[in-house]
Design a protein around this nucleic acid. Structure first.
Lengths: 339, 339
DNA sequence: CTGAAAGCGCTTACAG
DNA sequence: CTGAAAGCGCTTACAG
């Protein structure tokens, strides 16, 4: 079993057990058809284990024409915690079906992306997950067409291309509804300006909830800038200087909420007594530890990873576009209703 | 090139180009020895590209005896941003050498760990990185002995086992030195209590720096509890109630510093004017965005990933234990020296 | 109940 | 300059 020794093969096992390689293969793979005496089975298994035999998956894959790998092409792995969650979900589901994940970080570089896909295809991966660290539209590389694939946390212009994405609209609606349910009538929204499904979807959800509550949408209640702490800080200054300031804030994400907290504190306002705050993303390190802890809407990246693998392996039902719910995570930043 | 069609093989290319498969192999692999006419080369390449030929890496691996994969066995992928950074570094370095990463998340479950390693070994990985999301001692699974391997962000009792770890002592020293250099003489340390190289190493570094500065170590200046925001909050209460309170705080990590900020703010103390703060980890979402931004010491996970792959592939020099420096990241929470 | 043999898609001495 | 053939480690009809 030294790592330098020639690896032991099925032939070695057969020799030691005194049978043919075919028999070894039948026994080790528990082939239903084969009628082999228990004594022989035992001898084969004993020989295999004595020799420390490990089947060569490369040879098996060669025969089968495809490997037990699922490739994951990601534009970024470590930029946010979300990419890791997606990977974790995909990994768990792949493992459940006997597959291993082959990952690559492309940095969104088209050249690297093509090389990566080339190598994955050469390894005859069973399929490919093409994933992005924030929800956006992508142009899927041509090579993807050669293999089963699923877009994870992104989508393409072609609606037939299987994609798994978060329900931004529903999330924006839930966040807003939470504040409406707590009795608020003037709800500010500190949004992000990018042209992406996050900002536009959450705004759509926010607006829909406001309208459904029979309230007039008020442009003065919506502020849009970046998607980090600084924007939250500035957003509070702008929205609270309004003659009719909001009594609650829906922040584009938890980082924005973190900045909003700072600005609110400087103004001497208490959360949630003076003003309620809801975030988005459920970035644990922030949401779980701000003072007070932040009620937010979770980005379902783990679930996206799971579902993407299911869709890839054909065990998910539904059409090509999977929209995953963004669940509410209740913490302390929205007071309970006082009717 | 339809994904259902039988994949095109080297035989197909040979037939179309009117040469033998050997010639195709020589041309496509640019074999130095082979003297092949430019015309033939062109014909082969044209045929390969016209047919959309992709070499079967499984067959190549079978011949070679090993694949171009490096397995990564991780106890957690998404728990912290650090695991992702380690993966990202490992991925980049592996790619540079023509390898792909095969990753698995074991959740620190021994059974899953063994299964994972079994599958990786069956795929004849070139080597395995065994990694943990926080720096700690581990018991490397037996299977690891069958393949070249490196422990990343962890180490075992056996000093000959190659391991790549962060320099906790050096980091603790740097953090403390930063505060000493800014003129502070009473420096508090809010440490974490676990029995792990992080807390013990950072404490050792802190103590060494204090002693080197000719100051008496004072137990009243060291508080130890958990490693999150709550501990920082409590730590400030305890340390600042001392008759001779510290003028500077070294926090076990950025999360602790975040909690410390809250407590300091409640006490009406300004950072860094009234009290300086240094964190550890360089968790961007916190350190880069607290008010004021946090000066900290970075955990070099990307570099650990890079070095681990280098050690695995035998391109890193030095002994079996690689200790990676934790660089200082200057931001706003330590004032400039006033002599 | 078990074995001999073909074949998966490549690479590489060995001939010519 | 190029080709025929063996062999990597398996699985799977096909015989017996």
């Amino acid at each position: 079993m030294s790592r330098d020794a020639r690896r032991v093969t099925i032939t070695d096992v057969a020799a030691r057990a005194g049978v043919s390689v075919a028999t070894v293969s039948y026994v080790l793979n528990d082939k239903p058809g084969a009628k082999i005496t228990p004594a022989t089975r035992d001898r084969v298994r004993a020989a295999a284990s004595a020799l420390g035999y490990r089947p060569n998956a490369l040879a098996q894959g060669l025969l089968h024409g495809t490997s037990r790998f699922i490739g994951v092409v990601a534009d970024a792995i470590a930029t946010t915690p979300f990419a890791g969650q997606l990977l974790e979900g995909a990994q768990a589901e792949a493992w459940r079906h006997g597959y291993l994940l082959l990952i690559a970080n492309t940095g969104d570089d088209l050249q690297v992306e093509q090389n990566t896909l080339r190598v994955m295809l050469e390894h005859r991966v069973a399929g490919v997950l093409y994933s992005t660290y924030f929800h956006r539209q992508v142009i899927a590389p041509r090579e993807l067409a050669e293999v089963p694939h699923v877009l994870a946390n992104c989508y393409s212009a072609d609606p037939r291309q299987t994609a798994v994405v978060p329900d931004e609209v529903g999330g924006g609606r839930s966040a807003t509804q939470l504040l409406l349910d707590a009795g608020h009538r003037r709800i500010g929204f500190i949004n992000s300006v990018e042209d992406a499904p996050g900002p536009s979807g959450r705004l759509a959800g926010y607006t829909a909830a406001i309208k459904d509550a029979g309230l007039p949408p008020d442009p003065a209640l919506v502020f849009a800038a970046g998607h980090d702490q600084e924007s939250g800080y500035v957003g509070v200054q702008v929205l609270l200087d309004d003659p009719q300031p909001p009594t609650a804030l829906f922040c584009y994400n938890d980082r924005v909420a973190m900045g909003a907290y700072d600005a609110l504190r400087e103004r001497g306002l208490r959360v949630p007594e003076d003003i309620a705050v809801v975030g988005f993303d459920n970035q644990e390190v922030i949401a779980g530890h701000l003072r007070p802890t932040l009620t937010t809407v979770a980005l379902p990246h783990y679930e996206i990873g799971v579902r993407a693998v299911q869709a890839l392996l054909g065990v998910a039902d539904g059409g090509p576009r999977h929209v995953i719910e963004c669940p509410v995570v209740l913490r302390e930043s929205v007071g309970t209703r006082v009717d």
